[in-house]
Nucleic acid binder design. Sequence first.
DNA 1: AGACTTTTAAATGTCTGACAAATGAAAATC
DNA 2: GATTTTCATTTGTCAGACATTTAAAAGTCT
Lengths: 244, 244
Amino acid sequence: MKIDPSKPADLSAQIAAAIRDAIVAGDLIVDERLPSEAELADHFNVSRPTVREALKRLAAQSLIRTQRGATGGAFVRRLSFEDAHSQQITTATLLLSMNAVSFETACEARYALERACAPLSAKRRSADHLAMMRAEIFRQGQPGLTDEAFCASDVAFHRALVDGAGNPVLSYQLAGAVEAMQPLMNMITFTARSRGAIVALHAGIADAIEARDATAAEAALTDLEVYTQELARNVMAERAGRHG
Amino acid sequence: MKIDPSKPADLSAQIAAAIRDAIVAGDLIVDERLPSEAELADHFNVSRPTVREALKRLAAQSLIRTQRGATGGAFVRRLSFEDAHSQQITTATLLLSMNAVSFETACEARYALERACAPLSAKRRSADHLAMMRAEIFRQGQPGLTDEAFCASDVAFHRALVDGAGNPVLSYQLAGAVEAMQPLMNMITFTARSRGAIVALHAGIADAIEARDATAAEAALTDLEVYTQELARNVMAERAGRHG
DNA sequence: AGACTTTTAAATGTCTGACAAATGAAAATC
DNA sequence: GATTTTCATTTGTCAGACATTTAAAAGTCT
């Protein structure tokens, strides 16, 4: 772990980068303890607050955890799929909202990724995954469900589909993409008719997954994408008409 | 932006979470200036170093940028696709290495995602994307190329394929997945024969994209996946044999 | 000797106060 | 009016101190 000449940027950023690089390169392994803040301050020739700012940067990225007490300190943290998942949701959500990504673009990406999971899910899904999909479909058909709850159930349905592929890397990537779209989906008010159509389309997906028919699953997802895009276009058009 | 009862966790983490939530919820818009550190310290009833630790956490997530001087301060930052991209590479790389994700699992996820882009890329790719793919294929055939350079070219090839889909959300998701696999790919020593085979498979992909044949592109990607998986199995088996 | 209690040392969490450096705006000067 | 100077504001950094937590070491009692 090397020095940082006082040239360009914040010292805390440089120190954080140096430690992060060491972790990514494998020089620091999981659960290894970093030197104490005082030792790091001495090593980098900076003050303790500066070191602390660097450590907080790393903590924000879930790269380290800190522990108080006699045997405490900063430890390299094992990045879990769950951590990565929640990080990605935040990132993807902000990315979509701050960059004015169109519903069309986000939707296309989401369903493209989901179709990628479909064949694997058709092949490997357990009875549990299928049962969860059916349960969410049932919930979506219940009357009196708020739009928010409907969207949440939609996310749960797709999550079960993705998890059925049995590949944690895919699950982590996809769950982020699906959940990040929720704010966009929430802009749509679902009528009783559109809910019925979506439930039917979901049932088609579940049927294909149950039959372990990869081709049918992909086709059913495409149908759902087409319907969703159409629904969004209609909502946008109506909104534009009202406000224009 | 609300208070934080001094109950459970670090104050700086609580403050960072409060500000982050405000950003995600849209209460703080892009380029809006946060109160100064002194004002935040006063508002949250903590000291300035504590506020600074919170701000550094947010800066580490690219949520804010800071600027010195009279009109300086912390500003809500527009999260760019580029920022999100590099963040995701770090996250995905660590996720794979720290959780002992098998080559097989990572490879499967990568090609599943890439196949999701293929139809879109076949439909929308520009001449530039195709030219870049061809250029990388040519480079991969050059003798005297290091394994590292070969892998880098491989990444560039796939990046061009993904970018051809013309969907920035897909590009950001996929580029992360592809690049995060590089450390795993680098474990494989590519013989002249295997390089030749990969170049041929890449050519098959490029041909399909050039012909705008989505089905053929997906099939070609599957071929490449099968070959890559086989290659990895052989390398692992040989390595196990040598060490056993 | 063994189990329990107390002490202690090490480490992070937080605060106070201060100075340095950057930066744009206001004031002063030509 | 244009240029230069001054100045106030804000972040970056440092030094030192105290509070809190925690586990191990030391001590005490049975």
